[in-house]
């Protein structure tokens, strides 16, 4: 059972109050009509699937009903930080900063 700290409620709550919403920081295409099939496919279906540090979006469905981001380790399930939409994570994987 994960414990997530909702940055809006400012409270540590149990996993089943939340819904997982997938990889964080995916930018919606600015000019959708000019996208190639390749770019559409990548945008819709291809997600990072790292073994280690992962930035992901969660939804506090049984609480404030707001979205926020989490930096989590996908092997140990340690949660390094939670942060509001629009903020940048403090913890990143080595290869992301390269």
């Amino acid at each position: 059972m994960l414990h997530l700290f909702c940055p809006y409620c400012q409270e540590l709550r149990e996993e089943d109050e939340f819904h997982y919403r997938g990889q964080a920081h995916i930018v919606r295409p600015k000019d959708p009509e000019s996208l190639s099939d390749k770019e559409w496919g990548d945008y819709l279906f291809f997600r990072h699937n790292p073994k280690g540090i992962h930035h992901e979006m969660w939804y506090h469905v049984s609480g404030c009903r707001r979205f926020f981001n989490v930096t989590r380790n996908t092997v140990t399930y340690d949660i390094y930080e939670t942060y509001k939409i629009g903020e940048t994570p403090a913890v990143t994987a080595k290869e992301e900063t390269e």
Partner: peptide, 13 residues
């Protein structure tokens, strides 16, 4: 588990 993971155990709920 709804969230991704490589830990070979699942969430209790």
């Amino acid at each position: 588990d709804s969230y991704t993971g490589y830990g070979q155990r699942g969430s209790f709920p």
